[in-house]
């Protein structure tokens, strides 16, 4: 009888019971094993995005657009309708889908190489048109999938496989703060920068995604949630070290918080 238990004599089997469940993987993620490296923030970003879809009860009304990059297979992991787009073109594909089916919740999920390099035009024009979509932007400052090349978002001085002596801003330009840039456009109703490396950051990022979907429901315009994330393989660091490095080096240039709300 549970009433007779006190906390010091409890056995594991008394705790591991359905009525004591406080957290389990959302059913809006598939059972497929994620293709990401150990500790990669893509996985956590997928999870909170799908938790929001589950909590809002919109699994059947949500359509996602997968990018080119490590998350090219996002449609294997997110248990919602999805379409994969050519490199950088996710906001254009999302525009078409949303205009044909305005009652659906439409999001893109894009890395920084996809969104801020080859797809810069699609990103900025979708933002400027105020398309009623949500962009989830995973900024790890590097091209993860192709072997850690420099991205437009790579920090000044940061070493990558194509900037082995560190990004030289005189020759290679400065890192691009996309979220601040698009926040200046009237078509953008919500622009925020978040992270998923600590429990507190995860909760805030999830809240931001909720807000973005809610604004989409209200047809307020384009909402963009940037998630500053790690790329352990590209940065050549163990996951915990990568997260520490991210706090020390990425956050000063990419400060977390709402940029436009």
């Amino acid at each position: 009888m549970s009433a007779s238990h006190d906390s010091d004599t409890l056995l594991l089997e008394d705790i591991i019971r359905p009525e004591n469940l406080v957290f389990e993987k959302t059913a809006c993620l598939t059972d497929n094993t994620l293709s990401y490296c150990p500790g990669c923030g893509h996985g956590t970003a997928h999870r909170i995005l799908m938790e929001v879809v589950e909590e809002m009860g919109i699994q059947g009304q949500t359509i996602g657009i997968a990018p080119v990059g490590c998350s090219v297979l996002a449609y294997d992991f997110m248990n919602v309708d999805m379409q994969q787009a050519a490199h950088g073109r996710a906001p254009a594909v999302a525009t078409g889908i949303k205009r044909v089916m305005p009652e659906k919740y439409v999001f893109t999920y894009q890395g920084d190489g996809d969104l801020a390099a080859i797809g810069t035009a699609e990103t900025i024009h979708a933002c400027n048109r105020g398309e009623n979509i949500t962009i989830i932007f995973i900024n790890n400052g590097i091209y993860g999938m192709t072997g850690g090349q420099m991205a437009p978002t790579t920090l000044a001085g940061m070493r990558t496989s194509t900037s082995p002596f560190g990004r030289d801003t005189e020759m290679m330009g400065h890192p691009l703060r996309i979220t601040e840039m698009v926040a200046t456009l009237p078509g953008v109703c919500f622009a925020t920068r978040q992270a998923v490396h600590t429990p507190a950051a995860v909760r805030k990022a999830k809240k931001a995604i909720q807000t973005a979907f809610e604004l989409q429901r209200q047809r307020k315009g384009l909402s963009l949630v940037e998630i500053v994330s790690n790329c352990n393989s590209g940065w050549k660091m163990m996951p915990r070290k990568a997260n520490d490095w991210m706090e020390e080096n990425m956050f000063p240039f990419y400060p977390l918080g709402d940029i436009k709300k």
Partner: peptide, 8 residues
């Protein structure tokens, strides 16, 4: 990241 922990 891999959602493999269940908590009670």
């Amino acid at each position: 990241p891999d959602s493999v922990i269940t908590v009670y």
